[in-house]
Design a protein around this nucleic acid. Structure first.
Lengths: 136, 136
DNA sequence: GCTAGTTTGCAATAGCATTGCATCGCTATA
DNA sequence: TATAGCGATGCAATGCTATTGCAAACTAGC
């Protein structure tokens, strides 16, 4: 069994051929990718299947989705300790206005925010836009 | 001249009848609204005109747009000191998972984040999801 | 090998965002 | 006042992303 198959099984995802290909592709990325990026980057495959594969991965805690304001949802691999119940992706996401790529900054955590009385926090999502390492 | 007309002129927006109505409606809101909300809340008007009115307001610094992950862009009035160049909306936005409303928390600012070397920050966008004051 | 459940592929649809174009109306100027 | 010009409006049409239904293909377990 390959590492990829093992990763899938660990997260309770049946390691089908398609899923292995998608996960393999995701692992190779340095930035978060959209469904379109995935479709273009892989051998010709059905778009809807790719869409559902990403959804499945998200449900099972393999990837997390990022709304970076570009209109298209992007996906990136989760850290080890995510599961279907909780995505521990409380890191900052960075959108580069120059190359239009979205990056996870896993070591840049979102600080605690004290909310006004009565507001109960469940999730957080911080997008910083600017110029990335490579473009600056 | 009414206050609303004055506000429009201050921001270099011609105070047409439609724009006065839209701004009046926006001022009365307690939460950010989507194009759909605006269309439903006002006397029957052309949706595209409403869309362009919001875009104009945004360009001129009257409102800022919020991507709360609900799929539809929402809009809320800016603070006084916004202009076309710079939206000073560095406050937190709160999305209530119960009532599905999005609120500006103008007094809850986004703290400074130190980015990894090479990343240059231009804008920030923090959405916190949870349960709001009224729903809790 | 057969059956049940899962996965995949195709078709179709819904909803938001956006543009093009023609019309209308206001303003400035001769 | 007549008119030219520009901005604002309304209608039509389109593009793109997300999403669902259904049937065929596949897989695992008996």
């Amino acid at each position: 069994m390959t590492d990829i198959e093992k990763t899938l099984k660990d997260k309770q995802v049946n390691p089908t051929a398609m899923r292995i290909l998608v996960l393999d592709f995701l692992i190779k990325q340095t930035a978060a990718i959209s469904l379109n990026d995935l479709e273009k980057g892989m051998a010709p495959s059905d778009r809807i299947t790719l869409y559902r594969t990403l959804k499945t991965f998200e449900e099972k805690g393999l990837v997390h989705s990022i709304e970076d304001g570009s209109g298209a949802t992007k996906y990136a691999l989760c850290e080890q300790d995510c599961d279907g119940e909780n995505h521990h992706d409380l890191h900052v996401h960075f959108y580069c206005n120059t190359c239009n790529e979205t990056f996870c900054l896993p070591n840049t955590k979102i600080p605690e925010i004290s909310l006004p009385k009565g507001f109960k926090q469940e999730e957080m999502n911080l997008i910083i836009k600017g110029v990335c390492e490579l473009c600056s």
